[in-house]
């Protein structure tokens, strides 16, 4: 197997990187792929909490890098999906415990074992971010329909382009169609207008996501959840499938924008 290494990043904090990683990993694994997620947020780990695996942590990524355990030993198997694994971050260290070349080495080893490696990047554009993108084959930038989040996404996209990572794809998270309709929120069209990258999915605002996050039960496992459906669709698009976008009443211009734009 040769895995695809995908990093999810945003610049701004709190826009849903960790939630997206957990949900995309669950969606890919539920579809039969072998998936490993890596928490890149050393010192502020929480992917383990969102996935409900906190109490199973024995070794973490810093233990792998510093040779205290083998790669296999730090891979925590998910309790629901047998082909889903998590490599947690160390909580008592900081970003300098890992270097970009360490990440490349760990991912190189993982590539032979799994289909997907998803890396949860920390917020910011410093060391932790650089570590997280070092090994990535492709990058997904996630943002909210808020001016500050979009500005940060633009900065991150600029850095990714400068680093030769190619043009990333965009996840627009927590869109509220009713607010967009009242012109109280940026529409998908407004966001794409500034960022000018390819959209891979729009996730609607959904209180179920918060419940799922707190309980360690990603919504992508809930067949009735709209947000879960959006994440499952993104996972399918990551595999190269053509999946029509959810009708989010995000404005009439969205469709023409999605299909009229070169990508």
């Amino acid at each position: 197997m040769t895995a695809k290494v995908v990093t999810i990043t945003s610049g701004k904090g709190g826009v849903g990187k960790t939630t997206a990683v957990a949900n995309l990993a669950v969606a890919l694994a539920a579809d039969g792929a072998k998936v490993v997620c890596i928490d890149g947020d050393i010192g502020l780990r929480n992917l383990d909490v969102v996935m409900g695996l906190e109490n199973r942590i024995v070794y973490d990524i810093v233990d792998i890098i510093e040779g205290r355990c083998r790669l296999r030993q730090a891979m925590i198997r998910d309790k629901r999906l047998p082909e889903l694994y998590l490599i947690p971050a160390a909580q008592t260290r900081d970003k300098t415990a890992v270097s970009p070349s360490d990440m490349i080495r760990v991912c190189k080893e993982l590539r032979q074992e799994v289909d997907w490696v998803l890396i949860d990047s920390p917020a910011g554009i410093e060391r932790g971010f650089k570590n997280s993108i070092a090994a990535a084959d492709s990058v997904l930038v996630i943002t909210n329909p808020e001016v500050s989040a979009v500005r940060d996404a633009d900065r991150v996209i600029g850095i990714l382009e400068a680093e030769g990572k190619g043009s990333p794809q965009l996840i627009l998270n927590r869109l509220n169609p009713a607010m967009v309709k009242k012109h109280d929120m940026l529409s998908a069209e407004d966001v794409l207008d500034l960022l000018a990258i390819k959209l891979i999915g729009v996730v609607p605002e959904d209180s179920g996501v918060i419940v799922g996050t707190n309980r360690g039960n990603p919504v992508a496992l809930d067949p009735k959840s709209r947000a879960g459906q959006a994440f499952r669709n993104i996972a399918r698009r990551m595999k190269g499938e053509e999946v029509p976008f959810l009708d989010l009443e995000a404005g009439d211009g969205l469709w023409s924008k999605l299909f009229g734009r070169k990508s």
Binding site: D154, G158, L194
Partner: peptide, 22 residues
């Protein structure tokens, strides 16, 4: 030109594209 980019040049500058905020 995306946020965070700074172009300094002593002559004229022509940009084919937007100059984004930042």
């Amino acid at each position: 030109l995306r946020s965070g980019t700074r172009i300094e040049f002593g002559g004229h500058v022509t940009v084919l594209g937007d100059i984004n905020p930042g």
